[in-house]
Each structure stands twice: as structure tokens, then as C-alpha cells.
Simulated assay, not measured.
Amino acid sequence: MNVMGFAGWSGSGKTTLVEQVIAALSARGLVVSLVKHAHHSFDIDHAGKDSWRHRQAGCREVMVSSDQRWSLTRELRGAPEAGLDELLAHLGPCDLVLVEGFKRAAIPKIEVWRSVVAEPLLHPDDPRIVALATDARVESALPQLDINDPEGVADFIVEHLGLRTDSRSAP
């Protein structure tokens, strides 16, 4: 499975960049999936909906399906948080999985860093960071990508992972 992570501090622009890179990679004919880590409690369901009520009643897993999508929600109910490998095992076939968050995961990552975010760079302490997407020039031997150029970031991912794209769709 081809995996590329995006790591960076809150407010660095990871979500915006990942969203734009997904669009760029998808336009090239790649099937892209995403795993996003949340540091807090989150709910994709809405209070009062049937599936929410079933979870509240005690279901460990609730699957909702329609003619357009399906979604599985699993309540951990005190069990340990799932690791990235376990989460990846639940995904269907795809060309590439992008991972947002999971800073310490043992996967290749692009560090997203903005000069206005007053946090230290991650890559000096993480040998799995393979490039830096930034809005500033940084002293580093890593390839530096323009955070405002999602096509360039997509080019890097395709080349770094050796992905084959649909040449008819590629820019």
C-alpha cells in the first residue's frame, strides 16, 4: 500500500494543502484515500439521528448505507485507540493513502510548516520526513516544496512513491 503522511503543527495549513493535493492526484486518475487523526472527541453523526441513537443505546459498530456511500462508526468504549496499521487495514483498494496527523507514524511524511506558526520544525527529529512544504526558505537538506503549489506537492508524491498516473489526466 502506498502511503504518504502530512505532519505539522496545528494552524500550519495541513488540511488545506491535503485537500488541494487530493484534488490534484485524483485529476491524474489516482484513487486516493485518507486517514486523518483527531486529537479530540469527534462525531460524524448527529444527535437524534437513528444511527446516533443506536450508538447511544450501546452498539459498538453502526454502519449506515445508501445508494451513494456507506460509513462505519466504531465506538471504542474504553479500548485503546487504533494504530495507523489497523486503520489502514480497514481501507478498500486504492492507489495511495494520504495520512494527516499521526506525526510519529513510521511512514514517509511531508512536513507542513509556515513561518507564522511559532513552533519548531519536526524534521530534525524525524528521519521519516522526506520533504518540507513551506512558505519560507529553511536551512535543510530536504527537498523544499511551495506550500501554495499543490500540483508541485502532488508531483513530488508521485515521483517519490513511483506512482503511475493516467497520462491523459496529468497536467
Rank of each mutant, 00 (worst) to 15 (best):
A89N: 05
S10P: 04
H37A: 01
R28W: 10
E75Q: 12
S51Y: 03
L17Y: 03
S41Y: 07
R114K: 12
G5R: 00
S12I: 04
L122P: 00
R55L: 15
S115I: 04
D146Y: 11
A89Y: 05
G101H: 02
T165W: 01
E151A: 14
D149L: 10
H46N: 08
H54N: 11
S169E: 01
R128F: 05
G48V: 10
H160F: 14
H160S: 04
L30G: 03
G29L: 09
G5C: 04
H90Y: 13
G11T: 01
L121G: 01
V153C: 07
P108Y: 04
R60Q: 14
L98D: 00
C94T: 04
V31N: 13
D155P: 08
T16R: 10
I147L: 15
H160I: 03
E119K: 15
V3F: 05
V112R: 02
D135V: 07
R114F: 12
D126C: 07
G92L: 13
A106N: 10
L132P: 03
P108T: 02
A7N: 08
H46K: 15
V99E: 01
H54D: 03
D50A: 11
P124H: 13
V31F: 09
I129N: 01
D95Y: 13
G162S: 06
L88G: 07
L91S: 10
A57F: 06
Q20R: 15
P127L: 03
R114C: 03
W113S: 12
G13H: 07
I157N: 01
A79F: 07
V158E: 02
H123Y: 12
E139T: 11
